[in-house]
Design a protein around this nucleic acid. Sequence first.
DNA 1: TGAAATGTTGGGGCG
DNA 2: ACGCCCCAACATTTC
Length: 485
Amino acid sequence: MTKQLTIVWFRQDLRLTDNPALTAAVANGQIIPVFIADDTAPKGALLGGASQWWLHHSLLSLNKSFNNQLVIKAGDPLSVLQALITEYDATHVVWNRVYEPWQIKRDAAIKAELKQQGISVSSFNGSLLWEPMSVLKKDETPYKVFTPYYRKGCLTRQSPRLPLAKPEKFSIHVNAQFTLDALNNLALLPDIQWYKEFETMWQPGESGAANRLSRFIDEAATQYQNDRNLPAVKGTSLLSPHLHFGEVSPNQAWYAIIGAFENAFENKDLDVYLSELGWREFSYYLLFHFPELPTKNFNTKFDYFPWRKSEADLSAWQSGNTGIPIIDAGMRELYKTGYMHNRVRMVVGSFLVKNLLIDWRDGERWFWDTLLDADMASNSSGWQWVAGSGADASPFFRIFNPILQGEKFDKDGAYVKHHCPELSRLPKQFIHKPWEAPVEILRACGVELGNTYPKPIVDLKATRTRALDAFSRTKAMAQQASEQK
DNA sequence: TGAAATGTTGGGGCG
DNA sequence: ACGCCCCAACATTTC
């Protein structure tokens, strides 16, 4: 019997349980687990600062699971793999698929090249419940609306793969060794020490992911429909960064929910959660079928939109100094914790695009750099959804009023007070609109607008009208352009 | 997974 | 008792 040695190329699947590529490799003999920092990644795909922090720790965790034998490399993945194949005399290479357009292209080229060299190469689905290529409408074109995509396109198809068990034992080539130098050479930890707070809130790695999932099931899943909207309450799963790096698969989350409760689909709370996993699938689906989603308006009407350029406004938004409490709380939460509650993501997104008229791509870029769960598919489809330019998007005229959103979902202002402590003494009546508070109340609460906390940088009512006007002019221009053809 | 403007209804105050 | 007005509460339309 010939000796079989398989290189397991880890990318966005940093786990041992339910890892199809790993399971296949282990069944085939010895393995070499490797992570490669890809030097050839296009600029827009380079990991943001927050994600780099996460990756650093997730790799440490994965290495621990591999008994200190995770090989870490940097460079052009093809060359790195070829060098490893030669060095170890490997016969097989396996990986779980990724879906960013540039990675699809790269992987196809690598697969072709290695096969040509007589290496056996296999790829697997480790990250999606339903892969994009297999879900189409009757006319063979991709869905553009979520509900039929999910209910008809996905749910009526074959059930997602049941999670695979963690390989009980595996044999790693004795020469495969982790070195801290190799990890540190990736320089994933940023120079600025802004991530201190990340460490108190997050536990990157497979066991951290499992903890989050079981905690969600025990404490929040059955109140999900309502509590997921309350940013001061831990009512969401908080799984997004773990899912992005593949420390847990959507299949594990899916079947954990279905297994923990009877008739999950009949239960509104659980059904809503499962459909959020469906939205994640939809994002990957859109990115796969519309590879320009991260940079181009899905709805080309928006190519005529008169975006404003304002460094001052953009930077006030980024730093959480717009003078509108729920916006500032969200943006500060993001910078400090690498995360922002989803309800608030919608509100700050609407504010940037509609009240400030700043291009959604500027928002997308900031999120990409600061979110621990930054994900090309979710980020671009999310921003296009907010802007109104996306597939099955929120219509542009649906403009969130940050005061009303605050009063509805952060009634007593706990979220605002936590992230904007300079407002913490304000009565809840004014917590979402301090500029309406009488001066004597402001003074008594230690708030001086324009000094301890900014005055609002825009008038919400006037900018709402301005946005609607810009939108109607955009429609007219698009209409005119189409008539001229 | 909106908000504001506009329309409708009905109870109650009042002459 | 009746008509009128006001306006809150809810519904519908519009962006």
